[in-house]
Design a binder for these strands. Structure first.
Length: 420
RNA sequence: GCGACCAUAGCUCAAUUGGUUAGAGCACUGGACUGUGACUCCAGGGGUUACCGGUUCAACUCCGGUUGGUCGCCCCA
């Protein structure tokens, strides 16, 4: 399209009626998360590049090759946020929130940016719903978060989403495991794919969830992290599982599940959907515990656990419902002549002030065309204003789904509609 | 970053192996029905066939490039 402007690749517009699906999800989130005591935090879309390098990890794909990084006019290296946990932790530290309350529960919703090749459910600007809980190292906190996600999925009536669970250990036990794992993988180096051979040096844990068949065969006989967990990590993991059982939440322990961010310790989990609309983008959400991150970023030694959900992916699962959430007007007012348009304009304003959803056609036009518009908007009722109505002060509420018109005094329209 | 496929009206798709003026359904506007939507019928508006170049008497059709989209690898939300 020469001469025409177009949007940036991988960054999408959201138009009605699709936007109503998003609003439904967002509204459900706000209501449910409030029940769990999570309050909204909003941080800038741009952060100091170093924040992500130090938290997400230099060796990760996200930081290594997916960030939108640029220099501002002051020569600072800034990046569009690729995820929400690090910015939230930064705000938590910067405002010394730990000094004001022992436990902090935050949620956020907003755009994230990663420069990636696009496919179904994956975009360069995408939106995450995240929740973070600071200050509690207990398993109950991990499970509360998972419970909240499970309840959200239920509220959205999403089915067939399974919870995968793993423990990645901590700084006490993970090094020993990693050492054993690397030793084992080195011994089988030539059986691994090229990518995994590179991972061996940079990020050995990632070899575990390589999809390559030959790598899987190697991994199948690799040391199991579960057997390496130190006593505190084992106890924590057991407690997480026990409390999930207590709440009747089903989960699958997957010792191969490794998340793509470096800051996770102990609990890691993923919500995975088996739905054709998502293609191979089956993860709708994931999270875990990051007990070292706050301190690592220069804050106090505060444990934390968090989760992030992909808004686009949730909406893809709801896509067949598009339009179902858009609220139609209660009333459409049509005008038969100029005098009616004048007085009707005032009536419409009054009805809206009274809390009703009311529409009219500002262009006027034939009654017929106005009624057509009334039909198209799916208004519940239509009211025609003309000489007769203005003279008598009475009109007829016409049910657009069919049925007998309801006689009503013009100054009682609001009252009549509220009760219907 | 690698590989495969695709691109025609706002949407979903046609257009006889290259051949007059690129069509239909839906949507939009108006009319049949001069104060009443839907169903029916009639009419109308809407296209540089994604863009740029090439082959040819002739290109929506064939070739190359660009851009965008889809799918897999990778990765993740």
């Amino acid at each position: 399209m020469s001469g025409k402007v177009s949007g940036v690749k991988g960054m999408n517009d959201l138009l009605p009626p699709d936007s109503s699906v998003w609003q439904h999800v967002e509204q459900t989130v706000r209501e449910l998360f409030a029940r769990f005591g999570y309050q909204e935090v909003r941080t800038p879309v741009v952060e100091d590049t170093a924040l992500f390098v130090r938290s997400v990890g230099e060796a990760t794909d996200i930081v290594g090759k997916e960030m939108y990084t640029f220099e501002d006019k002051g020569g600072r290296s800034l990046s569009l946020r690729p995820e929400g946990t690090a910015p939230a932790a930064r705000a938590y530290i910067e405002h010394a929130v730990a000094n004001q309350e022992p436990v902090t529960r935050w949620f956020y919703m907003g755009p994230m940016f990663r420069y990636e090749r696009m496919k179904t459910g994956r975009y360069r600007q995408f939106h995450q719903i995240g929740a973070e809980a600071y200050g509690a190292s207990e398993a109950a906190q991990d499970v509360e978060l998972m419970d909240m996600v499970v309840q959200l999925l239920e509220a959205l009536e999403l089915k067939d989403i399974s919870l995968n669970l793993n423990s990645l250990g901590d700084e006490t036990c993970r090094p020993a495991y990693q050492e054993q794992l690397v030793a084992y993988l080195q011994a089988h180096r030539d059986e691994l794919c090229a990518d995994c051979q590179a991972r061996l040096e940079r990020n050995p844990l990632r070899v575990l969830d390589c999809k390559n068949e030959r790598c899987q065969a190697v991994v199948a006989a690799s040391p199991d992290i579960q057997t390496f967990l130190c006593e505190p990590c084992r106890a924590h993991f057991d407690e997480v599982k026990r409390k999930l059982d207590l709440l009747g939440i089903h989960y699958v322990v997957n010792p191969r599940m490794v998340r793509g961010l470096d800051y996770y310790t102990r609990t890691a989990f993923e919500f995975i959907a088996s739905h054709p609309a998502l293609g191979t983008a089956s993860t709708v959400g994931g999270g875990g515990r990051y007990d070292r991150l706050v301190k690592q970023l220069g804050g106090p030694d505060v444990p934390a656990v968090g989760v992030a959900l992909g808004l686009e992916r949730l909406c893809l699962l709801l896509a067949s419902e598009a339009g179902r959430y858009a609220a139609p007007p209660d009333l459409f007012v049509a005008f038969a002549d100029a005098a009616a348009a004048e007085q009707g304009f005032v009536l419409v304003s009054r009805l809206r002030k009274a809390g009703l959803r009311v529409e009219f056609d500002p262009r006027g036009g034939s009654l017929k065309s106005q009624m057509k518009r009334a039909d198209r908007t799916h208004a519940r009722y239509a009211l025609v204003l003309g000489e007769n109505e203005l003279a008598s002060g009475k009109g007829q509420l016409k049910p657009m789904q069919g049925g007998e018109p309801i006689p009503v005094a013009l100054d009682e329209v609001a009252a009549a509609l509220v009760t219907r």
